[in-house]
């Protein structure tokens, strides 16, 4: 059966990049073997979360459209697992 991939958008906007987002560019390479092939990682221009404090602090990413603040590689991996479990 063709499983739909989890879509991860990593913000490459100035603020997110400065606040640690540059490290997130390596997410694809850091995925544990069981998650490989199940996740689609892409870059994005500013996701506009940074302009609204209620969204939390940068760097931001989204997992299937859900905003993740203060994203790090380990946080994103944990969130991807949550997403898979549903």
């Amino acid at each position: 059966m063709d499983e739909k991939k989890i879509e991860v958008l990593v913000c490459s906007g100035t603020l997110c990049y400065l606040m640690g987002g540059s490290e997130l560019q390596l997410l694809s390479e850091c995925l544990p073997p069981d998650l490989r092939g199940k996740v689609d990682v892409k870059g994005s221009p500013c996701l506009d979360f940074c302009n609204h404090p209620k969204n939390g602090r940068p760097p931001f990413a989204t997992i299937n459209g859900r905003c993740i603040a203060q994203a790090s590689v380990s946080l994103l991996i944990a969130e991807i697992r949550k997403e898979i479990k549903g």
Binding site: V10, S12, G13, T14, Y17, L18, S22, Q25, L26, S28, V41, K42, G43, S44, P45
Partner: peptide, 27 residues
């Protein structure tokens, strides 16, 4: 949006039809 890092330490360039180069801004 580009997703390949080089050693410049700057956010990667992106592509857009009809534009020769699309980059991050202030940095």
């Amino acid at each position: 949006v580009g997703f390949t890092l080089d050693d410049s330490g700057l956010p990667p360039a992106s592509k857009m039809q009809g534009i020769d180069l699309v980059t991050e801004g202030i940095l």
